[in-house]
Nucleic acid binder design. Structure first.
Lengths: 236, 236
DNA sequence: GGCCGGTTTTGCGCTATCGCAAACACCTGG
DNA sequence: CCAGGTGTTTGCGATAGCGCAAAACCGGCC
């Protein structure tokens, strides 16, 4: 079943401290699958039958309110796990995962988790680290939403995206997957209108270059300044 | 060293699946300490030398921005762990913990964690669950901050506090530790002024009764309604 | 090559909420 | 019993950002 070369994944944090033989055994329990752009991998509320490791592509995890509003929980980059509902004791997925680009994932059945953890305790420890890091990031996001204005939050969001999934060009850093104004709005707790206005402003100042679902940071350092700008430091 | 009766903590989620003997061994590594009301247990940014289990009292975890603004990350109730920086791979505490009431805690040295986890893998699994749950709660909070108005967020916050630390009275549910308007503002991403206005309004309608660092929910069901109220459903 | 649907831009009025400031209440310690 | 210090209430003006609406854009598909 394992058509995946262990060397491709051996270095991932998830498998830190796992011997090659063990890794082999772990991978034997997984199958791989390909999800085309804009296809759903799992839906919020569905039975958590599997957990995933993204090999290639990009996945958006989003949470929907009863009234239909959405927020983007995070973007998953290659090498990251997602859909870990079971590890945290949830029977259903708390969010929807969608491939924003053609993506390839490894899939384990949820039922394999307890067994794997028992045989390879490092998995639990590594996952704990990962989840802990995400918790920290969530807290940072809450802090930002509580204390910063929209413009600063958007600046931070872009910087994070660039760091996580930026492709270096000679004229800047491009976010390496399709992302709309709406998506950014859902990451920062605002509306697509406001994001559009902000990006338009930045574009006029030559700080970014953007188009349909595409953003290039032309002058990242100026965005850093914007991100740190206190609410009242003079504008133009 | 372990003056703590194992039976007091055996039922806690942290120790699920741990044998009494093992629990005994774990507790032998801990010491207990008492923190008076309003004393700091650890400070954001300090070396994470210990992790904690709250036995009695209430602890507030808060995060501070470089510019001095704070948010309340959570309130810790008896039986919960806190200061788990090391389990998530952080060398320093990401927040400040302060006793809001006279509190008693168990303290383990951070250095004991790897050893304990190795001997008792259930600890890692249990902690993973805990941290996972907190992650979910964080996401819920982000969702609320993104989509709801302040009044609804305050309603949700109070309901959660009541659920976690509510003392049942015959005329309502009282939040069982001192909590100021400012604290609630820092939990909901608003200002103490706005919280004060909201609570005043509710008090006039007989929904809550409140005073200095004290809140009683007189009609919880009406608060539930407020929490779910869509932004535009008619007011008085 | 032109049509169609999703995306983005932009204008404009509105309002929830902030920010500041001042007056109060309440508790505590002396 | 009074003074000082927190915590709370409330008024009022300012405004960031929302919400709605319309138009312009863009890219792929037939």
């Amino acid at each position: 079943m394992a058509k995946v070369d262990t060397s491709l994944v051996a270095h991932l944090p998830l498998f830190a401290g796992v011997t090659p033989e063990a890794l082999d055994e772990i991978l034997r329990e997984a199958r791989s699958a390909r999800y085309p752009k804009n296809s759903a991998i799992f839906e919020q509320g569905a039975d958590a039958q599997s957990f995933f490791l993204l090999l290639h592509g990009h996945v958006r995890a989003a949470k929907t309110t009863p009234t239909g509003e959405q927020i983007v929980v995070r973007y998953v980059a290659p090498g990251e796990t997602f859909g870990l509902a079971m590890a945290i004791g949830a029977a259903r997925y708390p969010a929807t995962a969608m491939a924003v680009d053609d993506s390839v994932v490894l899939i384990w059945p949820t039922s394999a988790w307890p067994r794997l953890v028992e045989r390879f305790p490092a998995l639990a420890a590594n996952t704990l680290q990962t989840v802990g890091t995400r918790l920290q990031e969530s807290h940072t996001r809450i802090l930002e939403m509580s204390t910063q204005q929209v413009e600063q939050r958007v600046a931070h969001a872009l910087l994070r995206l660039a760091k996580q999934s930026g492709k270096k060009l000679d004229h800047g850093i491009e976010i390496d997957f399709p992302i709309s104004r709406q998506d950014i709005a859902q990451m920062t707790g605002t509306t697509l209108h406001t994001v559009s206005r902000i990006l338009s402003g930045w574009e006029q100042q030559g700080i970014v270059e953007s188009g349909r679902q595409r953003i290039i940071l032309r002058e990242p350092h100026r965005i850093v300044v914007l991100a740190e700008r206190s609410p009242d430091s003079g504008a133009a």
